[in-house]
Write a protein that binds this DNA or RNA. Structure first.
Length: 499
RNA sequence: GGGCCGGUAGCUCAGUGGUAGAGCACGUGACUUUUAAUCAUGUGGUCGAGGGUUCGAUCCCCUCCCGGCCCA
């Protein structure tokens, strides 16, 4: 029999013995007066004399993560998933049945204790236990107490084990929760209305990506998991919701990497009457505020870097930055104007060893040159602005330059965190953009945007001048929690089944 | 999809073409202030899966599975 099976059998025998004591082995509730965290947070600095003087009585509970057992006494370490607290049990302070129960406990079991706070000889805050309650059994041995669980595959597949033994994992998801809460507060306090729009859409629009496909049986209808909520949120702006946002999941049927999970969480917000310049300033304010509220500072480590999330962020014009870096790399003068010419841009890309698709125009080539040359240099917050119209089918053109749209992407930590633009609200121009996308689709571009007649119809009712932005929540949390893989900020990242 | 790396006890990891190792965990005994408790002692293995080479494979070769990192 395997070691694990032996240990499970022993634990089951202990459970049976506990039941034989007349103890309820799966009780329905346990009324605590404090969580372990509350006790630690409140009394961690309180001296032993003060604890004796006030005699703090408590009832608390947690999972046993440490056992130091003596002949007629024991220390248990209880965890509430966030903090750990030592409790002290001794035979002469317990009723006989509680002492019998103590001897049948295993690492990982859930228990409740009643007692008062004190400090041990070594000055550790502890509970002097006068009553012990069994709450639930751990039938399987836990990972090792000192090294914890480091096998990343097991950490992702059995996240609960990661959470039990690795306190840092819990902290990452606390940062995530505070990040989302801070964003909600920031937006709602500025008059934005939170909404929910369809996750299943008849046309997967609002971004350039391959969708997941599903089917509705009763309506006998193909549906796509959304790749973005954008077109629905703008319909709401047509309807008069002048400030609106959604925080929810998007799904993209593409590769998995340290920065991509097939489902990921996005904030999108739309703000009537403003343009992308206003959004840049707003984004600086939003992100620095969220950082301070989520982690207490707007300057934080990310890998080997220290990121300063404080206004003003650096600003780079896409074609100018691409041209400047290409000039430096190639040792010859490349101008932004050259990147507007298809043949010249393709020549620059070829010289740089960047592959160009046959269907790509100058705008797409310029964008690919920029990404290839700059992406991993964009550690500090940087707005990359003025994208080519060709790669931006939903953005509004600059009044003075129809080949360029009022759009920016925000890069931090070497990857894209936000994407924003002045929204295209001319329905006729939108139709032309969709038609151009359809040409790309006809040439095999699986990410080209589909025609959406219903959306154009909504635009025909009139979308006011509007600025809109999407912010990748997972990537923002990666930055704020110093996590180098998106899988470390998603509780249950997609994994292939093991069998 | 390509390249590189990994998969050995519940966990963290060594290791070798010839009986499979350590620490933690677990069992037993001792111990009423320890904290990676200690001391003594013992149990525990589909060496990711399949095939091949070999007298003999966890080790060498091939295929596959799972994961990580990088690239596209």
């Amino acid at each position: 029999m395997s070691n694990e099976a032996v240990q499970t059998e022993q634990r089951r025998a202990n459970l049976a013995a506990i039941q034989a004591l007349g103890v309820e082995i799966y009780p329905h509730e346990f009324a605590t007066t404090h969580t372990v965290s509350a006790l630690v947070d409140t009394y961690d600095e309180t001296p032993g004399e003060a604890l004796e003087a006030t005699r703090v009585e408590t009832v608390t509970a947690g999972r046993i993560l440490g056992v130091r057992s003596f002949g007629k006494a024991a220390f248990l370490v209880l965890s509430d998933g966030r903090q750990r607290l030592q409790v002290y049990l001794r035979k002469d302070a317990l009723e006989a049945r509680d002492y019998d129960l103590l001897r049948l406990l295993d690492m990982g079991d859930w228990v409740g204790v009643r007692g008062h706070l004190f400090r041990t000889k070594t000055n550790e805050l502890s509970v002097w236990v006068s009553g012990l309650t069994f709450l639930s059994k751990c039938l399987v041995p836990l990972p090792e107490k000192w090294h914890g669980l480091s096998d990343v595959e097991t950490r992702y597949r059995q996240r609960y084990l990661d959470l039990v033994v690795n306190p840092d994992t819990r902290r990452v998801f606390e940062v995530r929760s505070r990040t989302v809460a801070a964003i909600r507060t920031f937006l709602t306090s500025r008059g934005f209305l939170e909404v929910e729009t369809p996750m299943m859409q008849p046309i997967a629009g609002g971004a350039l990506a391959r969708p997941f496909v599903t089917h509705h049986n009763a309506l006998d209808m193909t549906l796509f998991l959304r790749i973005a909520p954008e077109l629905y949120l703008k319909r709401l702006t047509v309807g008069g919701m002048e400030r609106v946002f959604e925080i929810n999941r998007n799904f993209r049927n593409e590769g998995i990497s340290t920065q991509h999970n097939p489902e990921f969480t996005m904030l999108e917000f739309y703000w009537a009457y403003v343009n992308y310049q206003t959004l840049m300033a707003f984004t600086e304010d939003l992100l620095s505020t969220v950082a301070r509220e989520a982690i207490g500072t707007d300057e934080f480590p990310f890998g080997e870097h220290t990121i300063t999330m404080r206004a003003p962020f650096r600003r780079l014009s896409l074609r100018e930055a691409a041209a400047a870096e290409a000039s430096r790399k190639l040792g010859q003068t490349i101008t932004a104007a050259m990147l507007r010419d298809r043949d010249a841009a393709a020549g620059v890309a070829a010289a740089l060893g960047i592959e160009v698709h046959a269907g790509s125009g100058a705008g797409r080539i310029a964008t690919e040159i920029f990404e290839a040359l700059w992406e991993d240099q964009l550690m500090q917050p940087t707005f990359v602005y003025d994208f080519p119209t060709e790669v931006s089918p939903l953005s509004k053109q600059r009044a003075d330059d129809p080949d360029t749209v009022e759009r920016f992407e925000l890069y931090i930590g070497g990857f894209e965190v936000a994407n924003a633009f002045s929204e295209l609200n001319d329905p006729d121009e939108q139709r032309r953009r969709f038609e151009h996308q359809l040409q790309g689709r006809a040439h095999g571009d699986l990410e080209a945007h589909a025609m959406d007649e219903d959306y154009i119809r909504a635009l025909e009712y009139g979308l006011p001048p509007t600025g809109g932005e999407g912010i990748g929540i997972d990537r923002l949390v990666m930055l704020l929690s110093n996590s180098l893989s998106i899988r470390d900020v998603i509780l249950f990242p997609l994994m292939r089944p093991r069998d």
